[in-house]
Design a protein around this nucleic acid. Sequence first.
DNA 1: TTAGGGTTAG
Length: 624
Amino acid sequence: MKRCYSTFKKPLNSNQLQLFSLESCKSMNQIKQTHAHLITTGLILHPITANKLLKVLIASSFGSLSYAHQLFDQIPKPDVFIYNTMIKAHAVIPTSSHNSMRIFLSMVRVSGFLPNRYTFVFVFKACGNGLGVLEGEQIRVHAIKIGLESNLFVTNAMIRMYANWGLVDEARRVFDWSLDQDLYSWNIMIGGYVGSGEIGRAKEMFDEMSERDVVSWTTIIAGYVQVGCFKEALDLFHEMLQTGPPPNEFTLASALAACANLVALDQGRWIHVYIDKSEIKMNERLLASLLDMYAKCGEIDFAAKVFHDEYGLKLKVWPWNAMIGGYAMHGKSKEAIDLFEQMKVEKVSPNKVTFVALLNACSHGKLVEEGRGYFKSMASSYGIEPEIEHYGCMVDLLGRSGLLKEAEETVFNMPMAPDATIWGALLGACRIHKDIERGQRIGKIIKELDSDHIGCHVLLANLYSASGQWDEAKAVRQKIEVSGRKKTPGCSSIELNGVFHQFLVGDRSHPQTKQLYLFLDEMTTKLKNAGYVPEFGEVLLDIDDEEDKETALSKHSEKLAIAFGLINTPPGTAIRIVKNLRVCADCHEATKFISKVYKREIIVRDRIRYHHFKDGFCSCKDYW
DNA sequence: TTAGGGTTAG
């Protein structure tokens, strides 16, 4: 406001006045009015004015790229600036990047301009953002001819382009050949390795850096989060706090993701306080990470409080998605649906992630009709075409609620090829409802596809053993072993005073092992006295002896972790466990009894959702 | 002298 006032006090010439009114445009209508005015006064012929109008159209939230493009087509003699502005605008939109190329070629061939270093930065961006290697190489030849290939900005854009294509070795070659590299070059390379899943090489480069800024740190921390090394990510975050630059909102979002996945509530809370105390600007993404952390640490009600307190960010879709996803995880389907309806009232447009969360909520609450309705509304009411993830949700929803035929039909009628997750959802449903015939049929398809998804084969083996067909189960297991692929071992962890303790099935590596197993024996007896009966259907090995079956069950990783929690925490405190796979029926039953017998709240997060055990009941109401 | 490169959900 102050600046506007002082600008008005100074006398302006008509040109300045036009530029000023352009920048203060608040709607498409105002832009159109100004545009008309620029035409009548002839000012539109001035390249700077035309470019300014283009920029407003491209950069403002209400502007439109197609209008900008129309304007661009009407400019009789666009200068290099205007060309570059248009190339850049199209470059950042993957579906539009071919337009960048078209404009570039027209600039060179029709107008006969020599591209400058800015031009190449934008065109390379477009190439890495939706165009192919052929186009990129073609542009590279142009750059070499003009002698701009060695310009640092251009080189960095090229490194980024190759990294985007997944050609990280070629990116590295450009990096190594480059005469000088700066912090950006290094950060782009590290980001490239991270994007290709090569966290080891990313870390090597990170360690070699003579100087690291906040982006270097954030990239490597986010990289560890991406590959599931949450502990390493958090360790690096602590190292950064001690020796590195102050974290920014990007860093904290990644650190929160690590806390969320480790169920490290104390550290997550610490970051929340850090955000409030420091100058970190809360944005919709950081808020979403914060809500996700609270939800994943079991504090869904507190997440809701934070969400409602941050009213200013309620116009963005990210926090809504985090909350709806959080409710879904906790099986609070009604709350998730209410929030989605509230979102409509607030006129926040949902995106595809919103529907994944919403359909998951329906799935966990067995809300078949609602799920069907929302799935249909995606395309008809919101213009969002369902993607494979949404079909996955539907297969899961239908299958788990027992509508196996409809679930199978959904898979066969999908507009895209089903992936391993889809087959897994269907097979999982067959297992829950003990539909051997269908399961075998699905299993055969999976075998034919020779899916790399090891989980599918394991599910098939489990389906056989759950129905007592030990020979078939053995055969599938042997095939898995022969193929040399490894089943992900069940692993549960618990945080105690900031230290994580991990347990595998039958783990004997923990220092407290002896005490732990003694406690487990005692615990099993107590549970049985309270009415607990082991569920042998979950014993996946061909064991004849009842007693041995029971021993196999009692060593499941979540039981070990819970026992460890019971031993090491004061009576009455909640125990938080995180498991990498789904919780098994027997552990689920046992944990209900533990919560009652030991008077503890036990919050277990499995691969898909939360189980909140209290007084002998679970929040999932035995439907998961 | 109106422009440039790197990092954040399911």
